[in-house]
Design a protein around this nucleic acid. Structure first.
Lengths: 335, 335
DNA sequence: CAGTTCTATCGAACCGGTTCGATTTAATCA
DNA sequence: TGATTAAATCGAACCGGTTCGATAGAACTG
């Protein structure tokens, strides 16, 4: 591998001039620049990013930290970020914490060690320890998905209260009154907001929420399945189930199928967030989806802004909250 | 951030002794080691991975390069690799090439620039250029999924010929004769092998393959959809469709639903590779799945072996081919 | 006890760039 | 034309570690 000294020798200039010419061509005389360009081409010089990062104290890499890269929600955002970053000469490193806070911390620390220029982070924690950890990170960071109280960073996400409210309203309009809600973890902002959207809308409509109809699905497959089962074995069953996210809703669908309930004939179902291949799932689930492309675009732009603009680093954090979209399926029937 | 020189100063030894003590404690006297340990703790020293990588010429990072991290097949493998790597003090960097060879090259080059210890690569190319490129990479590499002729590297994958054959045999057993096949890109080993498995089995059974029943789905959603449409509008329709991968098969299911065909009553469907939530897709597709956990485990072990063992680097490349598994659904009916 | 072999530690060079103050050269001004 | 200023280039220090040959002292040998 050719080094900058090889180039300097061949071009018959000093190493520092080569470095200067490469990073700021305008500050070098045209003929010197030409010599250096020739030499670079001749020896096939490519700057070592590691050495560069070490010397500069920062790299051209962006860390993307989420709990599940396989989730299409994160996948779409990743793609948007990646495209934008590549256009701006940055490189995205993806890491998956599997939702574990400890692993996330380790990964973030590793990324910081790599002198990443910035981080797109879907926070997995919420306690004081975690807040301190994030606050202590001295890099541009854009948080997304989960709004965590106490984190003073840019945030990009959707209006989750509205998402819950939209689906609840839809079910109410169809005549449902016995509506069940499968929640997510109570420490997650998305989960509590969606749930609030549900209860607020129910209250506004003057419909009481049956406490037995609120079960905890933890946003996971197993817990969602169990929660759904708990709903379905009740003597007085709900006429509609609202899943706080895609995983618990589809687990509920599976539980319904296994117990022989038909959807929507016996029980209606609605969910927040899309999944891959939702178009071939029968019935097509009525859902509220987030605009992942827009979210990804905003995250990308905001992060690159903070990274590239000198004063961008000190701008006060800002929240970007998008309106989710209602997508009608055929999983909800009129009662 | 504390540096190694801070530690050296506090422990009153030379920098090189500190470095030695940290990387090879046995070669330092017990009392010196103790002093250094104290100093490390006192200043909170953590070695800068960048500086370390630069000096050593290699890092503790492993690059994971695939065309679609969202695909659960790759997701499962990634998880296995990651767990194993973390246990062995290595760190996985995930990159997604979106299936584009050019982008994959750029990403691999970047990873090499980062002095990654090794690469788990799902190759996206096949031409001479690409072969030369891969051959020129001077890092431990384990290829998986696509077996590319001419790449002299470890390979981990499944018996794709068998996968195609199993499903074909199953359909033949059920009495089907007019079996259609939606293929993948002809330059992909998995695609051609699966197709060969189909044709060989058909030939063995003495059943002729109708050329109109073989359509190209490119392993993509749009092409798969088009291909399926082309099958479904024929006057003499197939009684069964075999999708060479999950994407084309599910696209076919969608096409069938849109045209009003019922599966399996009107047309049977089978596919190779699982998808997320296949359990709630109606009907449950009969399929042949790869043992992703085993594949991931082998990839991880093989790669770490080459990385950590001095002589591991020069071992001749080896192929690991696993037997896929038949998973019965209810998408195929007897005719 | 002189000669040899370990063992523990050190100093200096190195990995491959960047950066900044100093110096040389060229251009502008009185 | 000599003084002043700007532009171009250079040298050396630095980023934060690793590595290897050198050295000094301890332990072993005959």
């Amino acid at each position: 591998m050719a080094t900058i000294r090889d180039v300097a020798k061949l071009a018959d200039v000093s190493v520092s001039t080569v470095s200067l010419a490469l990073s700021n061509p305008a500050r070098v005389s045209p003929k010197t620049l030409e010599k250096i360009r020739h030499a670079v081409a001749a020896v096939g010089f490519v700057a070592d990013p590691l050495a560069q990062s070490l010397a500069r104290g920062r790299s051209r890499m962006i860390g993307f930290v989420v709990g599940n890269v396989g989730n299409p929600f994160f996948g779409d955002i990743r793609r948007e970020l990646e495209n934008y970053a590549l256009d701006h000469n940055h490189f995205v490193l993806v890491t998956d914490s599997s939702g574990k806070t400890a692993r996330e911390k380790a990964m973030v620390e590793h990324l910081i060690g790599l002198k990443t220029a910035g981080l797109a982070l879907a926070p997995s924690g919420h306690d004081q320890d975690y807040l301190d950890f994030v606050a202590g990170l001295n890099v541009p960071i854009v948080c997304f998905d989960q709004k965590v109280a106490g984190i003073e960073r840019d945030f990009v996400g959707s209006d989750n209260h509205l998402a819950g409210a939209m689906l609840t309203e839809h079910l109410l309009q169809l005549g449902h009154r016995r509506i069940a809600f499968i929640t997510g973890p109570s420490h997650m902002h998305t989960a509590t907001e969606r749930y609030r959207g549900f209860t607020d809308t129910m209250a506004n409509a003057g419909v009481e929420v049956n406490p037995n109809f609120v079960v905890d699905g933890q946003f996971t497959r197993t817990a969602g399945y169990e929660a759904a089962m708990r709903l379905l074995i009740q003597l007085e069953r709900p006429t509609a189930i609202l899943g706080a996210n895609n995983t618990v809703a589809l687990s509920a669908l599976q539980a319904m199928q296994e117990l022989g309930f038909r959807c929507p004939e016996d029980i209606s179902l609605a969910m927040i967030d899309n999944v891959q291949w939702s178009s071939v799932i029968t019935p097509r689930i009525t859902m509220v989806v987030q605009d992942t492309l827009a979210l990804g675009g905003i995250i990308a732009r905001r992060l690159m802004h903070r990274i590239t603009n000198p004063q961008g680093a000190v701008e006060p954090p800002q929240d970007f909250v998008l309106t989710p979209k209602f997508v009608s399926g055929n999983s909800c029937r009129r009662v």
